[in-house]
Design a protein around this nucleic acid. Structure first.
Lengths: 154, 154
DNA sequence: GGGTAATAGGACCGGTTCAGTCCTGATTGG
DNA sequence: CCAATCAGGACTGAACCGGTCCTATTACCC
């Protein structure tokens, strides 16, 4: 199957949760609220901040907040932020030399229409859509008792 | 990015090439025609045969042939054959016990609309579409001199 | 001004997955 | 009966990824 990176999954959770909370939120705070380990939440938030999906405030009393509304964030943006450009490809881009079978790669351009279709599909779904597809029980978590999340996650 | 398995890429190449050739083709023959190593071609064909995308003939003078026309094979079918069901997911299915955070997984069902959109997109594109998006030079390879492919691929 | 709380941005390690190969058996034509 | 071919699975080496941690840097607050 098309494997989605776990980090992307976390990113969606964190962003949705962030929209439920008021003001700036620290990464330890979000970790407690989501049940995701703190270092991992921090990593995700740093990546999201680099793509301007969240804005960050450094220093004491700092933290993160959404830089746009959930309905203005297509899931394509989140995937692109964490996993890189959306493209179904087997060719490794890091190699610099391109495909090993230089210029004769029979794949050249073959997947383009597929990628285009996928990108279009992912751009039409926003985080607000994903938020709504949750079970109601998880839509408005009891923020007064974040520990309940921790316990349940074990 | 959404990584596509290399085998799936090979599968598309082999299927398109298969449609260009007459009669049943052996896997060594297709390996020579595509420049893909023979054991790998054999593995791909076995998998495709298990999904009925190609039909196989065992024994001497046996081989493979397409079981449907290229325009009747959505790329979704090829991906599903090689990579398994099309679903963007971070949850590991092999685990049997499902998500570790039993029943409280905040993801539950969240990606469903996304998967649906992707599946729809991939079902609307056939191998015939991908064949056409090739550079003309590679559309009708010189089958009389398959060695040219081998040499160029090195 | 100094201490504390928080983000920024890497480096790093271990586990998992995957591409690729090979081996043994089953089937069929000559 | 022999040779050619597919079927199916085991195995290995390498690449990738998740997760953690460490060291700056920045800003608030006393």
């Amino acid at each position: 199957m098309l494997r989605l990176s776990k980090l992307t999954d976390y990113a969606v959770v964190v962003l949705v949760r962030l929209s439920d909370m008021e003001g700036v939120q620290t990464s330890p705070g979000l970790a407690a609220a989501t049940g995701i380990p703190e270092p991992t939440v921090a990593k995700v938030l740093k990546t999201l901040a680099a793509s301007d999906l969240v804005s960050s405030q450094r220093g004491a009393r700092g933290g993160y907040r959404l830089s746009r509304n959930l309905s203005s964030i297509p899931v394509a943006d989140v995937i692109a932020s964490i996993d890189g450009p959306i493209a179904l490809t087997a060719c490794v881009e890091g190699s610099g030399s391109g495909c090993e079978s230089q210029g004769l790669c029979p794949m050249r351009g073959r997947w383009d229409p597929v990628n285009e279709a996928i990108h279009k599909a992912l751009s039409s779904i926003t985080l607000a859509d994903m938020q709504m597809s949750l079970l109601p029980a998880f839509r408005t978590p009891d923020l007064a008792h974040p520990a309940a999340f921790q316990a349940a996650a074990e």
